[in-house]
Write a protein that binds this DNA or RNA. Structure first.
Lengths: 351, 351
DNA sequence: GTGAAAGCGCTAACAT
DNA sequence: ATGTTAGCGCTTTCAC
């Protein structure tokens, strides 16, 4: 009636549970013959390992915890996809938590993950996390912690992010190469690092190409379609020369696109446009929106790889007795963004 | 050094582990005073329950397994979001698996979920699953199984789907109410039930409104942007009267939209358009695409509620001794689709 | 190469 | 109201 255990198999074969356990785990000290025999019997009896018992005893769960703001956001869905895929191929499974950008849920979730004895945690930090105590707790418990996208340097953890500066630089330079000369930028709130990074990338690309940086062509928005519309209107009113816009993210770009279209500005002939983030709608708007891809799935894979490295390091560390190894600088992976060229930035040959 | 256990707390207070356990679990037989004392000490000693041990002993993990095709697909991301949210508020956590539409991964994942002793499984079946043995296995083990969206009646499990027929009916009737008279339909492969259901909804809406059903206005596509373009071209060539299209899903609608725009057909004045699925791009195309929403988050919540009901039933069942209760018809929830009206289907007052 | 024994940390039946 | 005891199913020394 109830689940078959290794005792049942042992009884069936007149051997011992420990032998069965070893055989099923391919322990070298068991002869090939008995391994074969035990494995067949296991199948016949419909045996299925109880991972709870195994984990309790061995101290490993082969489960890693994921903490993200929301799986409803395309980017995070993509990252989770990447993590789950590579994790599975390495024998790990995924316990998924969403903070919904709420510190409270994040704290709660991390607590639960620790209770579940996950082998590691991969997280992207919620916007409104009041403090990082819960993450420091993770480190205190020696549970490998890897951060991605929303990282915090104070945590001194391995992390993977995309190079925002470089992405902005690439976007701007692409517009320059297409022959646009007066390129505006709609930025976001400057206290958020990535937006400032993107602004710097834009400025440096102009400088590096010997183009003037014009403060009138820089607008600070609030990352929304509405804000994009408003910013585009302002820019258009301020400069007669502007012939392209690099927007800090795709929603802003979309708003700008919509405003300009409605204002009768021909794109991409009279006005080039590029966004950032490769949102799912960007291929389908008119004109289709050029943008910078952040490689979510790749980011997930890299994060998991960092986790594996941390696990390996941990295993080595405990071999070296109790000697507290001086904590080395955690590995920080910076992914290259990918330029996605679509209609909105391809200037057709001038007549 | 290592984790605090209930033994540590017991030793500290000169009491027994079982008392500590009961106190922490709010067992009624423990006095308020000792509960208080034990709980404070637990906090002081930085105690954290070992869920592995607890689950092994109690037979409950408070973890439910989720099996979806991919968290990279917007719809499933939304469902997972809904499940995780309500699950958490009920004390459950989510072990997430992706089949990537592959039967092999699905089988593997279900196996792992059973090994992990999840309390239940919520699944949406992969397209190419060769057979349903792995799901029957779940039922054999008496693990509650709930299906959503991609369901199979043979499994005789509680399930939640959206009413495709009704959604198609609503979409078509909306076009009729907007004054469109010659409404075409681009359908999908008819061996897939939902596409046939949508076709039926379209046909019945016409009939119910005393409009003729014209075979020339029905095109069978393959659910893609390209297919949408092609189908729209065919329809346009075949009928001079056609003034609206209901497309079987949003990508098809988008393709049709793009073709018609390029062909100079004014939308929504000369041609109305509505899709199905509320894909993330649909608000942002031009004209913005009216569509039918499938309420992914809601679907996840309902699925979880069905799981809770199955759990309750299971608990009751075992109370009634070993009497095998005749299996009653599983509850099948059919969600109402939601009509999302956007620009593409609002006929402006005729001049 | 195999088996005996201990125990991971917890819960729950059964005393007291 | 509290404590004793047993054991969930497995892994892992250690002995043979």
């Amino acid at each position: 009636m109830s689940r078959t255990t290794i005792h049942d198999i042992a009884k069936e074969l007149n051997t011992s549970p420990s032998t069965v356990s070893k055989a099923l785990n391919n322990h070298p000290s068991i002869s090939a013959a008995t391994k074969e025999l035990i494995k067949t019997t296991a199948v016949n009896l419909n045996y299925r390992q109880n991972r709870l018992a195994s984990s309790l005893r061995s101290g490993r769960t082969n489960i890693i915890g994921i903490m993200i703001p929301s799986s409803d956001i395309g980017f995070f869905g993509g990252v989770v996809h990447g993590i789950e895929k590579i994790a599975r191929s390495n024998g790990y499974n995924i316990l998924l938590f969403q903070s919904n950008e709420t510190g409270e849920y994040e704290v709660e979730g991390i607590e639960t993950l620790l209770q579940t004895s996950v082998d590691g945690i991969i997280a992207s930090i919620a916007k409104d996390t009041p403090n990082l105590d819960h993450f420091f707790d993770v480190k205190k418990r020696k549970v490998p912690l890897v951060l991605f996208d929303r990282v915090k340097d104070e945590l001194n953890s391995p992390s993977v992010v995309v190079d925002d500066y470089k992405g902005a630089f690439m976007a701007t330079e692409h517009l320059i190469q297409q022959g646009y000369m007066n390129i505006a930028h709609i930025s976001g709130p400057q206290h958020i690092k990535i937006f400032n990074d993107r602004l710097c990338g834009y400025v440096d690309a102009l400088k590096m190409n010997n183009l003037p940086v014009n403060d009138d062509l820089i607008q600070y928005g609030r990352n929304s379609i509405e804000s994009g519309k408003f910013s585009a209107e302002r820019l258009l009113g301020r400069s007669k020369d502007m012939d392209a816009i690099f927007a800090v993210e795709d929603f802003t770009a979309l708003g700008a696109l919509q405003y300009l279209k409605q204002a009768g500005v021909k794109m991409p002939e009279k006005m080039g446009m590029i966004g950032f983030g490769n949102e799912s709608f960007s291929p389908y708007v008119t004109p289709s929106l050029s943008t910078i891809d952040q490689q979510p799935a790749r980011m997930g894979e890299e994060a998991f790889t960092l986790f594996l490295e941390a696990m390996a390091k941990k295993a080595n560390g405990s071999q070296n007795g109790e000697v507290e190894v001086a904590e080395e600088e955690p590995k920080k992976i910076v992914l290259d963004p990918v330029l996605i060229v679509r209609e909105s930035s391809i200037r057709t040959p001038q007549g």
